[in-house]
Simulated scan of single mutants.
Amino acid sequence: MHRFQKKMMRPLFAPMLPGGIVIILIFSLDYFQFELVEKFLLFAAFVIVPLVILLLDYDEKSTHQRTIYTAMKGFQFPAALLVLVSVMSSKIWGLEGTSIPGALSLGWLLLTLLLGMYGIATIGDHKGKIAEIAIGAGLIYFFIGGIWFTLYQYQLNLFQANPDTHALSSVHFHFSSAIVPIFIGILGRIMTKKSWYPWVVAIDIIGPILIAIGMIFSKPIEYIGVTLFACNIAIYTTYLLTYLKRNPLHKKAAFFLVLSCLAFYSVVVVSMFYPLLKNRFDFTILDFIPIYGSLHAFGFVLFGLIGWVYMADSFKQKNVNRKG
Score class of each variant (00 low, 15 high):
His2Ile: 08
Phe4Val: 00
Lys7Ile: 01
Met16His: 09
Gly20Thr: 02
Ile21Ala: 00
Phe32Tyr: 06
Gln33Met: 07
Phe34Gln: 04
Pro50Lys: 02
Leu55Phe: 08
Leu56Gly: 14
Glu60Lys: 13
Phe77Met: 12
Ala80Lys: 11
Val87Gly: 02
Ser89Thr: 11
Ser99Cys: 06
Pro101Trp: 03
Leu109Gly: 13
Leu115Thr: 10
Ala121Ser: 14
Ala131Ser: 14
Ile135Ala: 04
Ile135Gly: 03
Trp148Tyr: 15
Trp148Leu: 11
Tyr152Ala: 12
Leu156His: 11
His172Arg: 13
His172Cys: 07
Ser177Tyr: 12
Pro181Phe: 15
Ile182Tyr: 11
Leu187Cys: 03
Leu187Met: 07
Met191Cys: 04
Trp196Met: 10
Tyr197Asn: 13
Ala202Met: 10
Ile203Arg: 08
Ile206Trp: 04
Ile209Glu: 01
Lys219Pro: 05
Lys219Phe: 11
Lys219Ala: 05
Phe229Met: 13
Ala230His: 01
Thr237Pro: 02
Thr237Ser: 11
Thr238Ile: 10
Leu241Gln: 14
Thr242Pro: 04
Lys245Gln: 10
Lys251Arg: 12
Ala254Leu: 03
Phe255Lys: 02
Phe256Asn: 13
Ser260Gln: 04
Ala263His: 07
Tyr265His: 14
Val267Ala: 09
Met272Cys: 05
Tyr274Glu: 10
Phe281Tyr: 11
Phe281Val: 13
Asp282Gly: 08
Ile285Asp: 04
Leu286Val: 09
Phe288Val: 02
Ile291Val: 05
Phe298Pro: 00
Val309Asp: 13
Met311Glu: 09
Ala312Ser: 15
Asp313Cys: 06
Ser314Thr: 01
Gln317Arg: 07
Val320Met: 10
Lys323Ser: 09
Lys323Val: 08
